[in-house]
């Protein structure tokens, strides 16, 4: 069994985001790029499955859509433990283009399980995984909080609105993972970093797929009203204010 993990790179989650060009473009100056947190977790889970011989997972590959400048992100995934990588050489403008590009990677290889994160922490789209599945006409399962492989079959726990379901789908399929899939992201050890240098990155050209949407402007969130402090000895006053002033209870 082969697993493909799709990874995007995003600004470090503590970045103070700023915009330039009259608030039409993200100011990338000084941004630290990291692997999207969910993609890091899905990579971790894929590697855990590979470590367990009973799953039959033999290879874990990663795929990234982006220009050559994003290769450090790919090397990081290789250092964490992926066996090889694919990069589709395009600066994508929307999720549709990303998914179209990832579909080329899937077609170029032999993958049984294709994993994507539930969203990227920059544009918060939650789009790529399901779009990819539709491009490939494959089944997709979203909001996966647990993934096992038993007897050559993926056994999935997914969150539904109001509970959980255990489901199976035939391979290949696209799994869109969320919290719970792995506990802590794996980090690269020195040996992994050394080995990553010689692992192959296959570069593919982007398919002809135009973007369907584009960001035209950004605005900072509305500043909130200053906090009103209530004396801890008089906590009942808070309840009174929530009831009569904010009118929320």
């Amino acid at each position: 069994m082969n697993v493909l993990v799709c990874i995007s790179n995003v600004p470090d989650t503590t970045t103070k985001v700023k915009f330039t060009d009259n608030n039409t473009r993200l100011d990338t100056a000084g941004i630290q790029w990291v692997i999207n947190p969910w993609d890091e977790l899905s990579l971790t889970r894929a590697l855990e499955l590979k470590d367990d011989a009973s799953t039959g997972v033999k290879q874990v590959s990663v795929a990234h859509v982006g220009p050559v400048s994003s290769e450090p992100t790919i090397r990081k995934a290789l250092a964490i433990g992926a066996d090889n990588a694919f990069r589709v050489n395009v600066e994508p403008a929307d999720a549709y283009q990303v998914a179209a590009a990832l579909a080329e990677v899937v077609k170029a290889g032999q993958f049984d399980i294709i994993l994507c994160g539930i969203e990227s922490s920059d544009y918060n789209g939650s789009n790529v995984g399901s779009m990819l599945a539709e491009f490939l006409d494959l089944p997709s399962v979203s909001a996966i909080s647990n993934l096992k492989v038993e007897g050559g079959q993926a056994v999935i726990t997914r969150e539904i609105d109001g509970g959980k379901e255990v489901v199976v789908v035939p391979s290949p399929f696209v799994g869109i993972v969320q919290k719970g899939i792995a506990k802590e992201p794996r980090i690269a050890a020195m040996r992994g970093i050394m080995m990553a240098r010689s692992k192959p990155i296959t570069v593919l050209e982007a398919p002809a797929a135009e973007a369907l949407s584009s960001f035209v402007a950004y605005e900072p969130p509305q500043p909130r009203a200053a906090c009103k402090f209530i004396d801890p000895e008089n906590a009942a006053q808070l309840i009174e204010m929530l009831q009569n002033e904010a009118k929320v209870i």
Binding site: P11, T13, T15, K16, V17, F19, S121, D122, Y123, N124, A211, L212, S213, S214, F215, V216, A217, Y218, E219, P220, P221
Partner: peptide, 13 residues
Amino acid sequence: VFSGNAFAHLLLN
């Protein structure tokens, strides 16, 4: 976008 640190205007084309 950016997990609540900004809002974006998105053109659906």
